[in-house]
Design a protein around this nucleic acid. Structure first.
Length: 291
DNA sequence: ACCGCACCCTGAGCGC
DNA sequence: TGCGCTCAGGGTGCGG
C-alpha cells in the first residue's frame, strides 16, 4: 500500500516522464467515485496542458500545470502510476504472476482498472494510472482553486517533530497508532510505517496519545523520520500492489521489523510479534520491547 | 471536540 | 483442477 515513501519514490520516477511534455490526449474509464472531477471535465482540462512541477503533499501527488491549474492524485490502497513502457509482475494478477517467468512478461496493456491514460504530443511513452480497488482519487483544481483534502493536511511526516506531536497529542485518548495515521496530525504516515516507527521508539500502539511522554514523542519522531527516509532510499516497500513507475521493486519490505510479522520472533529480543486490531487497522508490535 | 465505526471495492487466500 | 466465503485497508462521513 502506498504510503509516504512509495508516493515519494513514485514522484521521483514519474517526474521525468511527465514534466515538460505537452499532453495531447487523455483517456479515462467511466465516472465513478474514483474521479472527484467528472472524467469528461478532466479530459478537457488536461488536453493541451503541460506539467511543470510535481510535488508531494503527504500521500498526495500534485502536478502543477502550465495554466496554473493542478492535477491531484492519490494512490489509495492499490493505485499504480507508471509508464506504458514498463512491464512489472505487480501489474499482473497474482495467479499470472506466479506462472510467468520474469523474462516472459509482456508489457502491460491497459485493462478495466486503468482509469487514466495520458498521451503526449511527442509520441513517447504514456503515463498511466491504474487502481483495482478504486480507493485512489483523481481531481483537477482550476487555477487558484483550493481543496479541503489538501488544506487539512498536517506537516509532512519527513519533518516529524517530537515537540509538535506532544503538543497535538495532549489530552487525546485515541490510540497513538491511530493518532499517527491521522493525516491532519502528520501527513504521509500509513499502517506499515506507523507500526515500524512505534517499534523503533519502543512505544505500544494502543497507548493513548495523551499518555505518551515528551521523550517518547521525540523517539517516535526520530524513528518516523529514519524509517521513512530509509524506505525512500531503498525504493519503498513492495508489499502487495506497489509498483514504481519504472517497474523496479522496492526493498524496504526486507527491513521491516514488525509489520506483518505476527508470530515471528522480535528481531531485538526474540519474543513473538503480536498482531492486534486498533482503529480497524491491523497493528504489529513486540510486547516486550514496546511499553 | 472527540472518537469509533461503516462504507467504498476487488483480489488474495483460505476451507472444503 | 473450483467455488464461496472472509478479509484487508485510506480516507470520509456520520452517529453517539
Amino acid at each position: 500500500m502506498p504510503e509516504l515513501p512509495e508516493v515519494e519514490v513514485t514522484r521521483q520516477r514519474i517526474a521525468p516522464l511527465l514534466l515538460g511534455r505537452a499532453i495531447a490526449e487523455v483517456a479515462t474509464t467511466r465516472p465513478s467515485y474514483f474521479f472527484l472531477t467528472t472524467p469528461a471535465r478532466l479530459r478537457r482540462a488536461l488536453a493541451g496542458r503541460r506539467a511543470d512541477a510535481l510535488e508531494r503533499r503527504g500521500k498526495y501527488l500534485v502536478a502543477r500545470l502550465d495554466d496554473g491549474s493542478r492535477l491531484v492524485l492519490h494512490l489509495g490502497m492499490t493505485g499504480q502510476l507508471f509508464s506504458s513502457a514498463v512491464s512489472s509482475p505487480r501489474l499482473l494478477r497474482a495467479s499470472a504472476r506466479a506462472i510467468l517467468a520474469p523474462e516472459a512478461q509482456a508489457p502491460f496493456t491497459p485493462d478495466e482498472h486503468t482509469h487514466l491514460r495520458l498521451r503526449f504530443a511527442d509520441g513517447g511513452p504514456e503515463v498511466w494510472m491504474r487502481d483495482a480497488r478504486k480507493f485512489g482519487k483523481v481531481l483537477w483544481l482550476a487555477a487558484g482553486a483550493s481543496d479541503e483534502r489538501l488544506d487539512r493536511l498536517g506537516p509532512d511526516a519527513l519533518e516529524a517533530s517530537g515537540a509538535a506531536l506532544f503538543a497535538a497529542g495532549r489530552g487525546r485518548r485515541v490510540a497513538v497508532k491511530s493518532f499517527l495515521l491521522d493525516q491532519a496530525v502528520l501527513a504521509g504516515v500509513g499502517n506499515i510505517y506507523a507500526d515500524e516507527a512505534l517499534f523503533g521508539a519502543g512505544v505500544r500502539p494502543a497507548r493513548a496519545a495523551g499518555r505518551v511522554t515528551r521523550a517518547e514523542w521525540e523517539r517516535i519522531a526520530v524513528a518516523l523520520r529514519r524509517v521513512l527516509a530509509r524506505s525512500i532510499e531503498t525504493g519503498g516497500s513492495s508489499i502487495s500492489d506497489f509498483v514504481a513507475p519504472d517497474g523496479r521493486d522496492g526493498a524496504y519490505q526486507d527491513e521491516r521489523r514488525v509489520y506483518d510479522r505476527a508470530g515471528a520472533p522480535c528481531l531485538a529480543c526474540g519474543t513473538p510479534i503480536r498482531r492486534r486490531v486498533i482503529g480497524a487497522r491491523s497493528s504489529h508490535y513486540c510486547p516486550r520491547c514496546q511499553r
